[in-house]
């Protein structure tokens, strides 16, 4: 088991390096720092000095990969690649356009992101699995048919409409909750109820339908027939035999997103004015703050890779076939 995890970790490193190189190429080689400076400074005719100043302030005045002018190890370290990309591995993300330290900003914004993402994730999973189980139990009935139809309808609606519509109805018309914002302490829940509910409802159509197919796949398996031949009641067959088997693909499928919950939800956070990482990302994209976008790409991929590892590990935990044979 330990060797297995270690092996996965070893595999993860080249992928992270790949992500790093890719983003580096995207940010620094498609366009030169001069182009970025021109775009950031926004004026059509900026002076060369302004550009140089902008670059120097942010450390973009170094060579890309190799600094022949520097001494010793500085040949490799005094470069944009080392300063801007490689140092991310050490948790040093540099500064945003507004001069704030990105790493500190990220740690401060993690809490609010998690406050939305974790309950949304757990509730969404619970509700979808329950509904899917119900549809599968009443398979080939009118309930199943209309349930699936409703799922298709729900998944055909853009996530934006759930948010805009929810805000409009619950916060503006009925004034049950504040439209947006984020509070401190116990009062926070009033700000959280609506985004969480909308997050759950928005995701329910697709996941319920997907889980239902997983359940139905199990229903037709031979072991279910064996269970019936034993004379077990249908409820026992469903909750003991089918659920347990279908939960393996469901659980391992959702594990991969768990680490990414830290990243928060882009849309929800930005609409509800929640000071999390999702809205941070969106703000950075809209203000074209390359340093922040680069950092978020790096963190997002790292979290995804952790998710992949967790998936592998969770397989070994939930499936006895893998747990006991490795």
């Amino acid at each position: 088991m330990f060797a297995y995890i270690l092996r996965r970790l070893v595999y993860a490193i080249p992928i992270l390096v790949g992500v790093n190189l890719l983003t580096f190429a995207l940010f620094f080689m498609v366009n030169t720092p001069d182009d970025m400076a021109r775009m950031q400074l926004g004026v059509k005719r900026v002076t060369a000095e302004a550009i140089e100043k902008w670059k120097a302030e942010r450390g973009y005045d170094r060579p890309l990969f190799w600094n022949g002018a520097a001494a010793g190890a500085g040949k490799a370290t005094e470069t944009i690649f080392f300063q801007k990309s490689a140092r991310m591995f050490l948790g040093d993300f540099g500064r945003a356009e507004d001069g704030r330290d990105i790493a500190r900003e990220i740690s401060a914004r993690m809490g609010p992101s998690l406050a939305i993402a974790v309950p949304t994730f757990l509730l969404g999973l619970g509700v979808a699995v329950t509904l899917a189980l119900m549809l599968a139990f009443f398979r080939a009935t009118a309930l199943d048919f209309w349930g699936v139809a409703l799922c298709v309808l729900l998944m055909s609606i853009s996530g934006l409409f759930y948010i805009i519509g929810g805000q409009f109805v619950f916060a503006k018309v009925w004034q049950l909750v504040p439209i947006s914002g984020f509070g401190e302490g116990l009062d926070t829940w009033r700000f959280l109820v609506l985004p969480i509910t909308i997050g759950v409802v928005g995701g329910i159509g697709a996941s319920t339908r997907w889980y239902r197919t997983l359940f139905l796949e199990e229903v037709n398996k031979d072991y279910v027939r064996t269970a019936r031949a034993k004379g077990l009641p249908e409820t026992v067959i469903f909750f003991r035999h089918i659920l347990k088997n279908a939960m393996i693909p469901i659980l391992t499928g959702v594990v991969v997103v768990i680490p990414s919950l830290f990243m928060g939800s882009l849309l929800t956070e930005s609409f509800f004015g929640i000071p999390g990482l999702g809205s941070y990302t969106i703000d950075a994209i809209q203000s074209q703050d390359f340093a922040v976008v680069r950092s978020m790409v790096f963190i997002g991929s790292a979290l995804y890779i952790i998710g992949l590892m967790l998936t592998d590990i969770s397989y070994t935990l939930v499936d006895p076939r893998i747990r006991l044979s490795s």
Binding site: L22, T23, N31, F290
Partner: peptide, 22 residues
Amino acid sequence: TVLNSIPGVLLIAASVLMMQVV
């Protein structure tokens, strides 16, 4: 795996930002 591991929106955002500069 490398492409997949970058969150989709961010990868698109980064590419679009770069394209805009171009």
